[in-house]
Simulated scan of single mutants.
Amino acid sequence: MGSIRTVQRKRVTRSAGRSWLALAVYLGLAFGLSWLIALPLGVSGDGLEHPAFGAIALCMMLTPAIAALVTVFAIERPQHPAEALGLVPLRPAGRFLGYLGLGLAVPVTLIFAALIAGSVLGVYPADFVTFSAFHDLLTAQTGGGLSMPIGALVALQFVNVILGSILNLLPALGEELGWRGWLLPHLLRFGTVPAIVISGVVWGLWHAPLILLGYNYPTAPGWLGLLMMTGMCTLMGGVLAWLRIRSRSVWPAALAHGALNASIGLAVVFAQSGEDIDTVHATILGWSGWILPAVLIVVLIATQQFTWPPRATVRRRSFF
C-alpha cells in the first residue's frame, strides 16, 4: 500500500514538474521570439516609423502560437494536441456558431460603448451627429466632395469592421492559440480570477516592445502606456477567456481578437473635428472604456460562466 502511494506521489510530482517546465518554455519562447523580432525597431532608431513595421508587428503576432506549438509537441506531447490547443471540438455546431457570433458582436459593442462612456465622462470628443472628424478625413483623402451621405459612409464602416474581423482571424489566431488556447487553461487551476489577471498581465507585458515606442498611447510616457495596455488586456482578456471557456474552442476568442483590432478605428469615425483623442482616458484603451468590460466580467463571474471544463461538456470525443 505504501509503495503504491509512493508511486502516485512521484507521478504527481513529475506531472507538476512537467507543467511548470511547459509554462517556462512557453513564456520564454513567446516573449523571447517576439522581442527579438521587434529588435530592429529600437536598434534602427526608426521606432514605429520603421519601413517594415507592419511585417514586424504581424510576425510578432505569430510568436505565441509558435511557443504553444513547441510546448505542446516537444514538452507535453498530449494524446490529442488539437484539443489541448483549443482548435477542436467544433461541435455542437449551433453552440459553436453562436459563440462565433458573440465573438464578433461583443468586442464591437464594447468598443462603441466605450466611446459613449468617454463622451458622457467628458474624455472623448464625440460627434455622433455630423461625424465631423470622419467627414474631414474623407474629404482630405478624396480631395473633394463625398460620394454618398456621411451617414451611409459611417454605416459602411461597420461592414468594414465585419470584413476586417474575418481577415484578421488568422493573424489573431497567432496570438490566441497561445494566450487563450494554451495558457489560460493551464492557469485556471489557480482559480478563475487569478487566471484572468495573470494571463491579462502576461498579454499586456508581451506588447512592451511596441508600447514603449509609443504604440497605442503616443502621448503617454512608456511606463504609463505599458500600465494602461496591461489593464486593457486584463479586462478584454477576461472577455476572450469567457468565449474560450464557454465554447471550449479558441476560434471565438480569435475572432473576437480580430474584431477588437478591426474596430479600434471607430474612435476616429465618431470623433469631433479638430480635437485630440487621448487614449489614456478615452476609447477602449483608456480607463473610461474599461468600465463596461469590467461590469461584464463581474456578471460573468457571478453567474459562474467561467466554469472549467464547462458543465455541458461530457467526454464524447466528437471533434467535427
Rank of each mutant, 00 (worst) to 15 (best):
F134L: 05
F134W: 08
F134K: 01
F134M: 04
H135T: 14
H135P: 08
H135M: 05
H135N: 02
H135Y: 03
D136Q: 14
D136S: 15
D136M: 10
D136I: 15
L137G: 14
L137T: 15
L137K: 15
L138T: 12
L138D: 11
L138Y: 00
T139Q: 06
T139R: 12
T139K: 09
A140L: 05
A140M: 13
A140I: 11
Q141A: 12
Q141W: 03
Q141Y: 01
Q141K: 14
Q141I: 12
T142L: 03
G143Y: 10
G143Q: 11
G143W: 02
G144Y: 06
G144C: 13
G144P: 05
G145M: 11
L146H: 12
L146K: 15
L146N: 02
S147V: 11
S147T: 13
M148T: 11
M148S: 15
M148R: 14
M148D: 12
P149M: 07
P149N: 12
P149K: 04
P149V: 07
I150Y: 09
I150R: 07
G151N: 12
A152Y: 04
A152G: 12
A152P: 10
L153W: 02
V154M: 12
V154G: 14
V154E: 09
A155H: 06
A155G: 08
L156G: 14
L156A: 11
Q157N: 14
Q157C: 03
F158G: 00
F158K: 01
F158C: 07
F158V: 01
V159K: 00
N160M: 13
V161A: 07
V161N: 10
V161K: 05
V161H: 07
V161E: 02
I162F: 13
I162Q: 03
I162A: 15
I162L: 13
L163S: 01
L163T: 02
G164E: 06
S165T: 05
S165V: 02
I166F: 13
I166S: 01
N168P: 05
N168R: 09
L169S: 02
L169P: 06
L169E: 01
L170M: 10
P171W: 11
P171E: 07
P171I: 01
A172T: 00
G174P: 10
G174K: 05
G174D: 06
G174C: 07
E175R: 05
E175L: 09
E176H: 14
L177V: 14
L177A: 12
G178C: 10
W179H: 09
W179L: 15
R180M: 07
R180L: 10
R180I: 05
G181A: 02
G181V: 00
G181L: 06
G181P: 07
G181H: 10
W182G: 02
W182F: 15
W182E: 01
W182A: 00
W182Y: 15
W182L: 06
L183V: 02
L183M: 13
L183A: 12
L184C: 08
L184E: 09
P185F: 04
P185L: 02
P185G: 06
P185R: 04
L187T: 09
L188W: 00
L188M: 08
R189H: 13
F190R: 05
F190D: 00
G191V: 00
G191D: 04
G191N: 05
G191A: 00
G191H: 09
G191M: 03
V193K: 12
V193D: 15
V193E: 15
P194S: 04
P194E: 00
A195D: 04
A195C: 10
